[in-house]
Write a protein that binds this DNA or RNA. Structure first.
Lengths: 198, 198
DNA sequence: GCAGAAAACGAACGTTCGTGCTAATCTAGT
DNA sequence: ACTAGATTAGCACGAACGTTCGTTTTCTGC
């Protein structure tokens, strides 16, 4: 039972990268099998359906995201340092080598926003959690007095997500070399809007 | 030669709506033909290739966008009124009935950011123009003294695009009933950040 | 109203899609 | 080393993909 899990993990790693470029629907059994030098049926046997494969890809990516972004950022002190760490690691994540097509969640969000089903529901759950992490991080900062108490955590999370999406658009589609600079500037503006007057 | 252009227009209208839901690649000749009660081959003859169809869909949508968003907004007076009109009409556009799947350009941007070709190039051109319209509108406001002269038009355009993308994410994927409110609030914050102190 | 052009059709093509079967091969526990 | 069970391969399927072809229907200009 060991070997199976190993190949399954290898499949998911490749599938995640492929999905970042071609979307979850673009992760085709044939192409994936060819990349991994497996037979279509041999690969398929691990998942029993394409939907199950998509769900596991999403779960795999979410676990990676927690590991690469959330967990290390939560080690930073509350307030600005933690928020900055979340943002910087998020930027880094969407450029990381296992995601040659950019952030998988951005791709999947647009792809699934109109296709009902369990994959969509799963993605919605993941995104809500992530927005929750950002909002909570700001809220903690408010309680610690780093941000003024009119700062709206949910609005802030929403706005930061917008900065990230704009970055994705500028860097991936427009290939704007200033995309990263612009993203950081926008984020700093958001931060200073929430900062408590001293 | 009259009838042909008429059906071609009807095809493009349907295709635009379909593309907003399923993406440009999801605009399949068969499905489109079925919706319009045409034969695959009869429809195909109008375009000679799928790529040409996609290009024309993009062009069709761009023309609609100019008509529904840009042109009426440019009739507003410079400065805040014009920027507000651009934003409001943009919001309206992405909810309009010919786009049941939301803004086609958002969908296409994510879909094409990794697929080279003429369709991608065309989309990039459209998006650059649109960002240019926003930036120029702010610049005109700066010159008129409505905004302070440290306001960066390109950064502003980039940020407004982010607000729009976040709105799309919140409303389409998360089905957040507050999406519109959040988008307006974020836009107002951007505006007041550029406003000249009096 | 007729001739010629334009437009739509129906059938077929080669591929690729996801998904089943069955058979062969490999791995782990004894 | 042997065997039970897990893992992979081989092959086939029906459907859908974009595209081509030759034919038929439907327009349009005189």
């Amino acid at each position: 039972m060991r070997k199976g899990d190993l190949t399954r993990q290898a499949i998911l790693a490749r599938a995640t990268g492929l999905a970042s470029k071609a979307g979850l629907e673009g992760v085709t059994i044939g192409a994936l099998a060819a990349e991994l030098e497996l037979s279509k049926s041999g690969l398929f046997a691990h998942f029993h359906s394409k939907e199950a494969l998509q769900l596991q890809v999403l779960e795999h990516a979410a676990a990676q995201f927690v590991e690469h972004v959330i967990r290390p950022a939560l080690a930073e002190p509350r307030g600005e340092p933690r928020l900055r760490a979340l943002f910087e690691r998020w930027l880094d994540w969407s450029q990381s080598s296992p995601l040659p097509g950019g952030c998988l969640f951005v791709q999947a969000s647009v792809e699934l926003d109109d296709r009902p089903g369990s994959v969509r529901e799963h993605l919605v759950g993941i995104q809500r959690q992530w927005l929750g992490v950002i909002a909570t991080s700001l809220q903690k900062g408010v309680e610690a007095g780093a941000f003024h108490d009119r700062a709206d955590p949910e609005q802030f999370a929403h706005d930061v997500y917008g900065v990230m999406l704009a970055y994705h658009h500028a860097s991936r589609l427009l290939r704007d070399p200033q995309a990263e600079t612009r993203a950081r500037r926008a984020f700093e503006t958001l931060l200073s809007g929430a900062r408590a007057a001293h």
